[in-house]
Each structure stands twice: as structure tokens, then as C-alpha cells.
């Protein structure tokens, strides 16, 4: 895979997110080393904290340099992930997602 093919997956500018923001995970299925689990793609969650900037694993996996990505903890309600979820109404899954996978709702 070429560096340009990987680089084009990143939007050029991302505004920072804040705890409380509602975000939708990109419903996208690019090839390569992707850390965003498929089960949350296209799903809406709420940012619960910011961890600061980290190297983008999608580039690091190919020894490519690129801009760091802000990493956020995003909380998804179980009932938003699985329509037949039968546990508690506030049961949740927290995922750590990089900024370029998140779109503010």
C-alpha cells in the first residue's frame, strides 16, 4: 500500500472535540491496519474524555510519518450498538478512537 493511499484517508482539518460532544464513527471500511472496531462504525456515542495526541497507528503500521491524532474515549450505550440488548439501560462500551474516525453530530 502506498503512503498516498493511506494519507488520503485523513481529512485535512479536525476541530477538537470536548467531553459531552455527540459523535458518529465513520461508516468506512478502508484496507490496512485499522484500530476502530467494525461494531462501532456508523454508531453514535458521546465523548467522555480526551487523552491527547498519539501517533496514528494506521500510518505507523507501515512505518509512515504523518500528523498525530487526538485520541478520545467515546461512550456508546449497549442498546445503541445491539438492538436486542437486554441488560441495564445505562450499560455501555467505552472505546478509544482517533479523531479522524469521529464526526461531530
Amino acid at each position: 500500500m502506498s503512503a498516498s493511499a493511506l494519507q488520503t484517508r485523513e481529512a485535512p482539518v479536525h476541530v477538537p472535540l470536548n467531553p459531552g460532544d455527540l459523535v458518529r464513527v465513520r461508516d468506512d471500511y478502508p484496507p490496512g491496519h485499522i484500530r476502530t472496531p467494525v461494531y462501532v462504525r456508523g454508531k453514535v456515542g458521546r465523548v467522555t474524555r480526551s487523552f491527547g495526541a498519539f501517533g496514528n497507528p494506521e500510518l505507523l503500521a507501515y512505518r509512515l510519518n504523518g500528523p498525530q491524532q487526538e485520541l478520545y474515549e467515546v461512550r456508546f450505550l449497549q442498546r445503541d450498538l445491539w438492538s436486542d440488548y437486554s441488560g441495564g439501560p445505562n450499560d455501555s462500551v467505552d472505546l478509544d478512537l482517533y479523531r479522524h474516525w469521529l464526526e461531530k453530530v
Partner: peptide, 8 residues
Amino acid sequence: VRVHDSTA
């Protein structure tokens, strides 16, 4: 129940 999926 809060699951932490530590994929990053």
C-alpha cells in the same frame, strides 16, 4: 456495566 474495549 461499563466495558472498556482497549484497542488503541
